[in-house]
Amino acid sequence: MGNKPISQKKLNDFTLVINPGSVLDNNNAHEMVEIITVAQDKGFKNIILDMTDLEFISSAGVGSILGTIETSREAGGDIILCNAAESILHVLEVLDLADYLTVKNNLEEAASLCS
């Protein structure tokens, strides 16, 4: 498993796309939280987490998402997950998060919620 770093790109004035890389665990969850928090502070009410490369997520990784969603929702936006592998979705299912997260199949579908 590689160690692709977290990356980000602006989709529009209110939406930032973040790619968490290949691993989201204790080693980089705090970085993830910081990137999301800074983006929210800058007015990006929508955050799309493009999980194309994500192979492993720990509880800290899940926490970095759960702990920042409400801020986006309070601003009228959301944190949207997309391109998640079956293994990642399974972790979210184990935690019964399906009803509480916005998950889309791909970036296009996620972006359609952020226009």
């Binding site: 969850a29 939280v33 720990s58 509880s59 800290a60 899940v62 926490g63 970095s64 759960l66 702990g67 920042t68 409400e70 801020t71 972790v91 184990v94 935690l95």
Partner: peptide, 12 residues
């Protein structure tokens, strides 16, 4: 709602 970022490990 409580913006909780930690403490899910044991549950998992």
């Amino acid at each position: 709602k409580e913006k909780k970022k930690h403490g899910f490990g044991l549950t998992m």
